[in-house]
Amino acid sequence: MTQSRKRAYGRRIALLSSGPALFGLTLFLIIPFLLAFALTFTDQRLVATDSGRFVGWRNYERLLSISYVVQDPQPGVQGKPAFARVRDVTRADPVHRGFRPFSDFSWGQKRVTILAKDPVFLESLLNTFGFALMVVPLQCAMALALALLVNAGLRGQTFLRAVYFSPVVMSMVVVSIVWTFLFDRDLGSINKLLSLLSLGTIGPVNWLGGRATAMPAIALMSAWQGAGFQMLIFLAGLQGISQELYDAARIDGATAWQRFWNVTIPGLRQTIAFVLVVTAIAALGLFTQVDVMTQGGPQNGTSTVMFHAIQRGVREENIAYGSTVAVVYFAIITLLILAQQALQRRWSK
């Protein structure tokens, strides 16, 4: 075979072997995504499927517009400064039509209110990243701890691996329903257990109903559900670290902590990076748990980007807007990935 014919043959094989997968990805992932992108410039609705008219950047404008109002204090009751209701101000002023308060802060005597056309999206964005910041370290630390534990050479560890892995095989819908019950303020086992352990000093916590506890509760449950799988990946990493390194450290008189810090962690660098990425991607797509357990409440405290997209797109039948949420979100994540890769390249130089 000549070199060029060989190359042509190789190309044909390459095409043949990657073809089916690339075809599938194109047809069932890339094209629908491009379709979603195209929808963002229309007013397409779910039920009236032939309604899609071109509306330009309207969806993006509604999603991303931000503004502000500055208010002077008015003489209030009891000497405290009072402010006019922001909603009265925004609804009266055509400049602020469609804007709703997102958050506010004091600026000297004045009050500044940040307005957004879709404050729930901004809240959802913050909640989603907040969730990722909670669940990624928690889940990875839990997984690493479990991996160290079932790798310690103790009897029964094979069985325990299965036990720790078991939540992974349970459907997220099922897990969420069970935990909703466990988290229940009055009848849930978690509060009963807390009360028992604290001899009644800890009153019933409204886990899923409190703004401060709802997202952490969901994060805790999610970490619990997923840690088993990352445990297996860490186990793989641990078994790749040479025993000689540990022995050498021991001879140098290193404590268990020093060995962990100086041998285990460096040895797991690749694994940790992989686990972090995989966990973060899953965390940023949070939807099922929220939908089953809190419906985004209390007061949007657990609303996430995907939840917002489904609410607007499917439940309110505005698929053009739902798609816009998803596309903007995708753009943000892609930018983050690119930034992370750029940083990594700079580091490794």
Binding site: L27, L29, I30, P32, A309, A326, V327
Partner: peptide, 19 residues
């Protein structure tokens, strides 16, 4: 491929249904 990993299925489910 890495970029495709990020697309959540929920985001494309309706367009995929149309397809």
């Amino acid at each position: 491929l890495v970029v495709l990993l990020v697309i959540p299925f929920e985001a494309i489910s309706v367009p995929l249904m149309l397809l």
